[in-house]
Design a protein around this nucleic acid. Structure first.
Length: 474
RNA sequence: UCCCCGAUAGCUCAAUUGGUAGAGCGAGCGGCUGUUAACCGCUAGGUUCCUGGUUCGAGUCCAGGUCGGGGAGCCA
């Protein structure tokens, strides 16, 4: 008999002989018809389990089948039949059930079939994917990741594998994780040839693995710009690391980021690309994972699907920072932090704009240069730069991007203003020396996209093994 | 990093002024039923987060720590 996925079995016509393999969700027994058991079997290929009917006359019924508990792994041979009961169209009439793996102690199995808090399941990250929510999350995450590749591939973008280990500190913004093979108990010091613990003086990184300080990347942007200035349309998609001691439901120390970069494009092309991408991804997800999305809509956030459709169907509101400040200063809401031109927007301001004033995603462009990174293109007014933040309800900032400064003299001035050393950016400056071109790009926090798409509240629940301050189990 | 809250059975939570630690869910056994968030009965299950202190007596009060949650900052 052909071994098929549960998803395929559920979509098949009755009468088919088949084999399915998976894990028991529940077993219910009945004394009817000489005894039988109903087993809900799940293999992760779709949201719904399939019901297996095991008759009492199966040879191992008393010895094994009647002792199956949640999470036992089994193989089932049988025939797909129309279900006599309500709740499912088809079920499997088992002709043979083989137990592959038992659960050693059902009483202490960490994830029995009952409600659990997400906080508890986080401590059981190796088992939580056996629950409805986390298997749905895994399928949604996969679909969104594949959607990102498909979206860009269909539009002629090349996926560039920017390095994880880097010596440049991208924006000088985020705290970085150091990568080193030096002996922490005996660090080499500058000054003389002798190495001795406790000696004063700076650490001599020339003796480190790379011969210089190295870190985990906080962004692939600077590197991907080099490919953009040759391949025209590129993107990175990979893990990113921030050593910030931030403990919130929206931050991770290790997260995945999508960073497209387009040549011969400006801030408006950039904003359009961001909007088109988000809409494509959400629309594709609602179609391809309708089963899981219905679950999130029912159990995680009521009205989720309707809200996502609203995001897909209504144009994003694009406005300048100056306009945003104007709206906020006229707002009747009372803010904890003051609203004034030149100050960064606080979370409460972002939420007001996207949740209360516009009630849809908002793209804010043209920010004061003092509060944005050095590489953002200086506008004609000399006061603002072509930066861009996309804000969405409930999440806040989901995308941050900009048109890049392509003029070498302006870039050098901005590097100097920002107090950075221009030497480290020699290769970044070279892009402006040899065939410079207007270009733009943005970074999308992949896990924040998943929060938006699923209605989940905590970012640690939309990545398989979350890494955060004091959290690196598994 | 800052502010607030919390930690008691496998899980979620009770426990009055400091005085014998309980329930629901889950689990095991039995009953009933083409069951499906099943239902009914019985049973088992505890170093009350850690260290120290106050007290005749601490789950409860005090100090320090660890971990978790909510909010903020920073950001994606």
């Amino acid at each position: 008999m052909a071994w098929i996925k549960v998803s395929e079995a559920l979509a098949s016509e009755a009468g088919r002989e088949l084999t399915v393999k998976g894990w028991v969700r529940t077993r219910r027994d009945s004394k009817a018809d000489g005894g039988l058991s109903f087993i809900q079997l799940h293999d992760g290929t779709c949201h719904d389990p399939i019901q297996v009917v095991a008759r009492g006359d199966l040879p191992n019924y008393e010895s094994e089948i009647a002792r199956l508990t949640t999470a036992c792994a089994i193989e089932v041979d049988g025939r797909l039949v129309e279900s006599q009961g309500k709740g499912q169209a088809v079920e499997i009439e088992a002709s043979e059930i083989r137990v592959v793996g038992w659960v050693e102690d059902p009483d202490t199995y960490p994830v029995p079939q009952k409600r659990h808090t997400f906080e508890y399941l986080r401590e059981q990250a190796h088992l939580r994917t056996r629950t409805n929510t986390f298997s749905a999350m895994a399928r949604v995450r996969h679909r969104l990741a594949m959607g990102i590749h498909r979206f860009f591939d269909e539009r002629g973008f090349y996926w560039v594998h920017t390095p994880i280990v880097t010596s440049s500190d991208a924006e000088g913004a985020g705290q970085m994780f150091r990568v080193s093979t030096l002996d922490l108990m005996n660090l080499p010091r500058k000054g003389d040839g002798q190495q001795a613990a406790g000696k004063s003086g700076e650490i001599d990184f020339s003796q480190d693995f790379f011969g210089r300080p190295a870190f985990l990347t906080v962004s692939g942007q600077l590197e991907v710009e080099t490919y953009c200035c040759s391949l025209s349309r590129v993107y990175t998609f990979g893990p990113t690391f921030r050593a910030e001691n931030s403990n919130t439901a929206r931050h991770l120390a290790e997260f995945w980021m999508v960073e497209p970069e387009i040549a011969f494009g400006d801030i408006h092309d950039n904003a359009r690309l961001a909007e088109e991408m988000l809409k494509f991804l959400l629309d594709d997800l609602l179609t391809a994972r309708a089963d899981d999305m219905a679950f999130f809509d029912l159990r995680i956030e009521k009205g989720l699907i309707e809200r996502l459709r609203h995001v897909i169907e209504s144009p994003f509101r694009v406005l300048t920072y100056t306009e945003a400040i104007d709206i906020l200063s006229k707002a009747e809401a009372s803010f904890e932090f003051p609203v004034a031109w030149g100050r960064d927007l606080q979370t409460e301001h972002e939420r007001y704009l996207t949740e209360e004033h516009f009630k849809q995603p908002v793209t804010i462009i043209d920010w004061p240069k003092e509060i944005k990174a050095f590489y953002m293109r200086l506008n004609g007014d000399g006061k603002t730069v072509a930066g861009m933040d996309v804000l969405v309800p409930r999440i806040g900032e989901i995308i941050g991007g900009s048109q890049r400064e392509e003029r070498l003299d302006v870039l050098d001035a901005r590097i100097a203003e920002s107090g950075l050393e221009s030497e480290g950016y020699w290769w970044y400056r070279d892009l402006r020396r040899y065939g410079t071109v207007p270009h733009a790009g943005f970074g999308l926090g992949f896990e924040r996209l998943i929060l938006l798409a699923t209605g989940m509240q905590n970012i640690r629940d939309v990545i398989p093994f979350p890494r955060a301050p004091k959290q690196c189990e598994f």
